[in-house]
């Protein structure tokens, strides 16, 4: 079992490197592999290739990679904490909060948008999570069904507010708002990844250290308590860290759904393990691979415009997951 985990993680790591290179190579302008490798090695290349790689492809590739990874990781933690396979980073109303923050920044024409949209979306996301958690505290100690219920209600309410605000925006702002809601890369927000990428990685390392607590929580709160973990305290910490990771990621890309939901499931199918340490690394890399590939395809499939990474991620992720589930069932029945 351990060998399988090591093998899968090495495989995902190699896939991540290959995906990063694929992303740097993808686009409407053909760049040679030599140019890409020379650029990465710090050698001199033509001005146009340097501009395309340095100012456009590298920031967006890094953004897609780190945000995919963040969503994958927080998806896994939320699924464990809420004991629900359908949980994802947006289950607690985080998407509604982020969307409202971003749309308000657009509605009030806060300049520069490349700062205010991510800033307010982060504030909105964290605020929504805090509201849901505070409601949850008043009920039975962050009981998962109650949290999901509050999360869905807050999500629906904030979604309605977002739609109301969008309906009074000017046509150009509506367009910007819609692209943000669909999840996109290649914006002026991408360069923020130089700050947000390392921050989300630090959160990932912290979550890795919390894997024993997650393993214990996975067995139920009573068992976790008997193993020396305070379920309420651990849940609060983990919720807040995952909210922060999601908020930071979403502030750059806009709402990218699905990756957070499907990455942990793919990781589980590949690893066939319930160890959170292995699952965490695998979910991190799977999320990163899915979103980086989705963004690469989104900007290469059509020549004149781009398809949002969020929709491509769903298009490739759903069949992959169904294939994995069906494959496992067939194996089980053959055995």
């Amino acid at each position: 079992m351990r060998n399988r985990s090591v093998f899968v993680i090495i495989l995902l790591f190699v896939a991540s490197i290959a995906t990063l290179l694929f992303s740097l190579h993808s686009g409407v302008v053909d760049l040679s592999w030599a140019e890409i490798f020379n650029y990465l090695c710090g050698k001199k290349i033509t001005g146009q290739a340097a501009l395309l790689l340095g100012s456009l492809r590298l920031p967006r590739t890094a953004a897609a990679f780190f945000i995919g990874a963040s969503l994958g990781t927080s998806g896994l933690v939320f699924q464990t904490l809420l004991q629900n396979p359908l949980a994802e980073p947006y289950t607690l109303g985080l998407s509604g909060g982020s969307a409202l923050g971003a749309i308000l920044a657009l509605a009030f024409s806060l300049e520069p948008t490349s700062f205010w949209v991510p800033a307010l979306s982060t504030v909105g996301c964290v605020s929504a999570a805090l509201i849901v958690l505070s409601f949850g505290q008043k009920r039975i100690n962050l009981e998962s069904r109650t949290l999901i219920l509050f999360g869905v209600m807050i999500s629906l309410f904030l979604g309605a507010v977002v739609v109301t605000v969008i309906s009074i925006l000017s046509p150009t702002k509506i367009q910007t708002a819609l692209f943000w809601l669909m999840g996109e890369f290649g914006t002026t927000r991408d360069p923020w990844i130089i700050l947000i990428g390392p921050l989300t990685f630090l959160c990932f390392v912290f979550l890795l250290l919390k894997c024993p607590a997650l393993d214990a929580l996975n067995l139920g709160e009573t068992r976790a308590l008997s193993l020396g973990f305070s379920p309420k305290r651990e849940k609060n910490i983990l919720f807040l860290i995952c909210t922060l990771v999601t908020a930071l990621g979403v502030s750059i890309s806009g709402l990218v759904g699905f990756v957070g939901l499907v990455s942990p499931h793919i990781a589980r199918k590949l690893l066939k393990s319930s160890s959170h340490r292995d699952l965490m690394v695998a979910s991190y890399l799977t999320g990163a691979v899915i979103l980086t590939i989705a963004d690469s395809l989104g900007r290469s499939l059509t020549t004149n415009t781009e398809i949002p990474a969020g929709s491509i991620a769903a298009l490739i992720g759903t069949p992959t997951l169904i294939f994995l589930i069906l494959g496992r069932k067939q194996n089980a029945s053959a055995e």
Binding site: G27, V28, L51, L52, S55, T172, Q175, F179, T305
Partner: peptide
């Protein structure tokens, strides 16, 4: 591409 969301790589190239 459309003026609301032109293809930036294409413009740069």
């Amino acid at each position: 591409g459309p003026y609301t969301k032109p293809h930036l790589e294409k413009i740069a190239s």
